[in-house]
C-alpha cells in the first residue's frame, strides 16, 4: 500500500500543504508591505515601495533596530560565556545537587513568558532597577542562557573528555588546555548557541514588553503599531526583521561550513 502511486501523490500533496501553510503567510506579509494602499486589501491592486522608504527614514524604527540588535548581541555574548562554563561544570565535574540545580535552572524556560516578564518586572521594581534595554538583557538571559547552556552541554558531552587530560599530561597548563583543546572542540556548539541566542532574543516580545521601559525593540514597535496606527510599514519592518534572522542563519551556516572545510583540509 505504501508504494502505490496514489499513496505517494497523497504524501506529496500533504507535504506541499504543510509547507505552504508555513510559508504563504510570510509571503502575504511581504506582499502587504509593497501595497500602495494604507490598508491591506487582497489581492493587491497597486504596488509601491514607499513604505520601505518610510521605514528606512524613520528614526523610531532606526532606534528600535539598534536597541533590538544591542540586546540580541549582549544576550548572546553573555549567555554563551555563561553557557561554556556551565556546560563544562556539568560535563566535567561532579558536585552535590548537580541534577537539582539543573532542573531549577531550566524551570524558567517552561514558564509562560508573559508571566516571567511580569514577575521580573515586579522583581526589578522592588529593587529599584530602572526599566530599560539593560533590564531586558537581564530578563532575556533568564530565559535564553539555560537554552544555550543545553546546546553547548550537548557538545561538551559529545567529545571524549580524555583529550583534555591528555593535553595536561603532555604538559599543557589549564589555560593552554582551554585555549587549544576545549574551545576548538566546543566551537560548533558555541556557534549554534550564539545563533540561537541572537534569534531568540531578536524575536522575543513578552520579556521586552515588560522590562524595556522607554526603550523600544522591533517586536515592541510592531505590537504598538498593530494596536494603534497600522501602516504597511508594519509588514515592511516584519519582513526586514525576517531578513535579519535569515542573514544571521546564513552567517552561522557559512561559519560552520568554513570550519568544516578547515577540518577536511
Amino acid at each position: 500500500m505504501f508504494d502505490s502511486v496514489l499513496y505517494r501523490r497523497l504524501a506529496k500533496s500533504y507535504l506541499a500543504l504543510i509547507l505552504s501553510l508555513m510559508y504563504v503567510p510570510m509571503l502575504i506579509v511581504a506582499l502587504a508591505s509593497i501595497s500602495k494602499s494604507r490598508f491591506f486589501v487582497f489581492p493587491v491592486r497597486r504596488y509601491d515601495m514607499k513604505w520601505y522608504e518610510n521605514t528606512f527614514s524613520s528614526l523610531q524604527i532606526h532606534d528600535g533596530f539598534l536597541t533590538s540588535l544591542t540586546v540580541a548581541f549582549c544576550v548572546a555574548l553573555i549567555s554563551v560565556t555563561l553557557a561554556v562554563f556551565g556546560a563544562l561544570a556539568y560535563a566535567r565535574h561532579d558536585w552535590r545537587g548537580k541534577s537539582l540545580f539543573q532542573q531549577i535552572l531550566l524551570v524558567p524556560v517552561f514558564f509562560p513568558q508573559s508571566v516571567l516578564g511580569l514577575a521580573l518586572q515586579l522583581w526589578f521594581n522592588s529593587f529599584g532597577v530602572v526599566m530599560s534595554w539593560e533590564a531586558t538583557v537581564f530578563a532575556q538571559l533568564v530565559w535564553i542562557a539555560p537554552i544555550v547552556t543545553l546546546i553547548i552541554s550537548i557538545q561538551a558531552f559529545g567529545y571524549d573528555a580524555s583529550v583534555e587530560e591528555a593535553a595536561t599530561d603532555l604538559g599543557a597548563s589549564r589555560w593552554q588546555v582551554f585555549r587549544d583543546i576545549t574551545i576548538p572542540l566546543l566551537g560548533p556548539g558555541i556557534v549554534s548557541g550564539f545563533m540561537f541566542a541572537v534569534l531568540l532574543s531578536w524575536g522575543n516580545f513578552p520579556l521586552a514588553y515588560f522590562t524595556s521601559g522607554a526603550d523600544v525593540t522591533i517586536p515592541e514597535w510592531l505590537y504598538g503599531k498593530m494596536i494603534g496606527g497600522y501602516t504597511p510599514m508594519v509588514p515592511a519592518v516584519g519582513f526586514l526583521s525576517v531578513l535579519v534572522g535569515a542573514l544571521a542563519l546564513a552567517i552561522g551556516f557559512s561559519l560552520k561550513a568554513f570550519s568544516g572545510q578547515k577540518d577536511n583540509k
Binding site: Y159, D160, S162, V163, E165, A166, A167, D169, L170, D180, I181, P184, L185, G187, D263
Partner: peptide, 14 residues
C-alpha cells in the same frame, strides 16, 4: 616528566 598513551588514544580530533 611522564607521559601516557590512553586507552581511547585521546588524539586531538581538530
Amino acid at each position: 616528566p611522564t607521559c601516557m598513551v590512553f586507552q581511547s588514544l585521546a588524539l586531538f580530533p581538530h
